[in-house]
């Protein structure tokens, strides 16, 4: 297996607010290998974005704080890294693309200037060379008239183009790891298809590892190799894309997939998970999903299940996996159709 680029071990990121401590990320462990695309899927409030911001150490502090755990990036534990060290890494070895292409570019500087700044911050090259590189990057991400666009301001570009610029900027220093936080959520489907296509190519050609945060299972199916499903600050299931989408084990994942409207069949009624996504709480008792789970039994309300290993990097957090012998038993399979 390829080398591990990023390994999160039992990461806890908590927010200390007036109304108490909130464990937004509550013991998350994820491995990302070289050249791999790993998706983190979850609904709002599941902690997926906080996980990615933790890796970049961009959690606003206070109120946020990485309480415990390890974040090993190529063997270096980032939890203890100084701000100076992080500045070296950010944008250079770890890059990030944000959801809002509208707000993540500075409206007062030209596209070229912003790219050149990012490039020259990490590479010792002249302005001229940097500009050439910036234009090359814009071409690489499929921007027509790249030379002219470099002299334009963000407001002159459409949403899809801005997101391409963000990707160009993120890729300009050949990062080992690209963190993409809902990169296509603000875009239209036809533009989304273009951007996903672009990311897939970059992943293949440059062998960049990608950590993709999304709520859209369709996007996951498009691009991810492996998927981690999060719920209320914890991982509830992990597996390959095929395993998660075709053969989900955790009742939450099953419900999530069943509640998607299907383009190719008509069911009279959509399955829906009752209740709402809970906010993570300190010292909560029992499985976080139990109040909404149709399989929940007494034990689920009393203790929180651990992750049951179901094979190679396949795990699920549910008591139903525990047989009398402690071995894995499968659930009633979700009928997700195809």
């Amino acid at each position: 297996m390829a080398e591990i680029v990023l390994e999160l071990k039992e990461l806890h990121t908590h927010f200390f607010t007036e109304s108490g401590e909130i464990p937004a990320v509550n013991g998350v462990s994820i491995k990302v290998h070289k050249g791999e695309v790993v998706g983190i899927v979850g609904e709002s409030g599941s902690g997926k974005s906080v996980t990615s911001l933790s890796v970049m150490k961009l959690i606003p502090s206070p109120p946020g704080k990485i309480v415990s755990g390890e974040m090993n990036f190529k063997g270096e534990n980032l939890v203890n890294a100084s701000e100076k060290r992080m500045k070296k890494l950010r944008g250079n070895e770890i890059s990030m693309i944000f959801q809002e292409p509208m707000t993540s570019l500075n409206p007062l500087f030209t596209i070229g200037n912003q790219l050149i700044e990012a490039i020259r911050l990490h590479q010792k090259i002249t302005k001229k060379e940097a500009r050439k590189k910036a234009v090359d990057m814009l071409q690489l991400v499929g921007i027509p008239r790249a030379d002219e666009v470099a002299g334009e301001y963000p407001h002159q570009l459409s949403g899809g183009m801005r997101q391409r610029v963000m990707i160009a900027m993120a890729m300009s220093c050949d990062p080992e790891l690209l963190i993409a936080d809902e990169p296509t959520t603000a875009l239209d489907v036809t533009i989304q298809a273009q951007i996903l296509d672009l990311m897939r190519n970059l992943n293949k050609e440059e062998d960049t590892a990608i950590l993709l945060i999304t709520h859209d299972l369709g996007v996951v199916a498009e691009i991810c190799d492996r998927v981690v499903v999060m719920y209320a600050g914890q991982i509830v299931e992990e597996g390959t894309t095929r395993e998660i989408l075709k053969d989900p084990e955790h009742p939450y994942t099953q419900g999530l997939i069943k509640s998607l409207p299907n383009m190719h069949e008509r069911e009279q009624q959509l399955y829906s998970i009752p209740g709402v996504v809970p906010k993570p709480k300190m010292n909560s008792v029992g499985c976080h999903f139990a109040p909404r789970c149709e399989f929940a039994f007494e034990r689920c309300f009393q203790e929180n299940p651990g992750l049951y290993a179901l094979g190679n990097q396949r795990q699920s957090r549910c008591f139903l996996h525990e047989d009398t012998e402690g071995k894995v038993k499968k659930h009633a399979k979700a009928d997700i159709g195809s």
Binding site: T190, Q192, G218, E222, T241, L245, K246, M263, S338
Partner: peptide, 12 residues
């Protein structure tokens, strides 16, 4: 437009 919709099914 229809072909651009990502489907949550790896076998499509």
């Amino acid at each position: 437009l229809l072909s651009a919709v990502p489907l949550p099914d790896p076998d499509m």
